[in-house]
Amino acid sequence: MLADRLRSIARIALCFALPALASAAPAPAASDALPASLVCHDDLFAPYFMQNDGRIEGLNVDVLREAASRIGIAIAFRATPWRRLESELAKPGGTVDCAFAMSRTARREQYLEFGKVALQPTEYALFVRQAEATPPTVRLEDMAGKVIGVRAGFRLPDEIVAGAASGRWSLAEVPTDAVNFQKLALHRVDAVLADSYVGLYTLRQLKLPGIVRVAPPLTRFDTYLVFRKSGHSAALAAAFDRAFTRMRQDGTFARLTSSYLGPDALTP
């Protein structure tokens, strides 16, 4: 008798529980869960990623902090030289899980998760001494027999690589854009290849007159926030894509870009 009564009570309790169980949202799969925190790496690249008195700051830092805040995860940043960063990302069991801002290549897509929304558009242009820029302009063909300063470890336009390989010009690698422009001012290189806006920003900071950007740029491409492929990398890339899209729609990208690069360099 007692056993029958207990079974009856259990059936009644189950009937009340079933609607609640049916309406509850399914728990996310482990592969879709976002981590509570994220550490992202980049090389020093003013004004996108800078280190002042031990503090990490810059345009991309501000963009990523805002995006992470909207997603609901904590984000920290580490400065890592570009070549070491590339090596760690490609190495199985490497120590870097997140990096920026990287161009999309078939090789990188084998081991990195790219989003669909770019972090920044990038254009590479030549910079020359103004006295040698007129008249009327400088073309890449005019670099025959000359030395072009480039930043070590960075992706170079195909025509620059091909010209160097054929001996039409030579490349001088240095670790920073600032060193490149100082060498250009001292006539130790004949031109500098750099990100257009990074170059203009660096020249203003160094107060180096008499150096101009050659138009049009040699190449344009997008750069992305990337994640080492893992159980949650696809979910992370999708979450940042949604945040970047909203930030472009509500004017946050334009406001942040303008604060560093001026109103004429707004991110499209």
Rank of each mutant, 00 (worst) to 15 (best):
M1Q: 01
D4S: 07
L6K: 03
A10I: 14
R11Q: 02
I12T: 05
A22Q: 00
A25K: 03
A29F: 08
A30M: 08
L34R: 01
P35N: 06
P35I: 07
A36N: 10
S37A: 13
C40E: 00
D43S: 13
F45M: 08
A46N: 09
Y48Q: 10
F49W: 09
M50S: 12
R55A: 15
I56E: 02
R65F: 11
S69L: 10
I71V: 15
A76M: 12
R78N: 15
A79W: 11
W82C: 04
R83N: 15
R84A: 14
R84M: 13
L85P: 09
L85T: 13
S87F: 12
L89W: 11
A90W: 12
K91S: 13
G93W: 15
C98D: 05
C98I: 09
A99S: 12
A99I: 13
M102S: 05
S103H: 07
T105L: 06
A106T: 14
R108C: 09
E109C: 01
E109Q: 10
E109W: 03
Y111C: 04
E113Y: 02
V117F: 00
T122H: 02
E123I: 04
A125D: 09
F127W: 03
R129Y: 06
A133F: 09
V138D: 07
L140C: 01
M143D: 09
A144V: 12
G145K: 01
V147W: 06
I148Q: 02
V150C: 04
A152K: 11
F154Y: 14
D158P: 00
D158R: 01
E159H: 06
I160E: 09
I160M: 06
A162R: 06
A165D: 12
A165S: 11
W169K: 01
S170V: 10
L171I: 02
E173A: 12
E173V: 04
D177H: 12
D177G: 11
N180S: 12
R188N: 11
V189H: 06
V189E: 06
S196H: 01
S196T: 14
V198C: 03
G199M: 10
Y201K: 00
L203I: 05
L203W: 09
K207M: 07
G210F: 08
V214I: 15
V214C: 07
R220P: 10
F221Y: 11
D222V: 03
T223C: 10
T223H: 09
T223W: 09
V226H: 05
F227Y: 13
R228Q: 15
K229Y: 13
S230Y: 12
S230T: 15
H232L: 06
H232S: 15
A235I: 13
A235W: 13
A238W: 04
A239V: 13
A239Q: 12
R248W: 04
R248E: 08
G251F: 00
A254H: 00
A254K: 01
L256H: 05
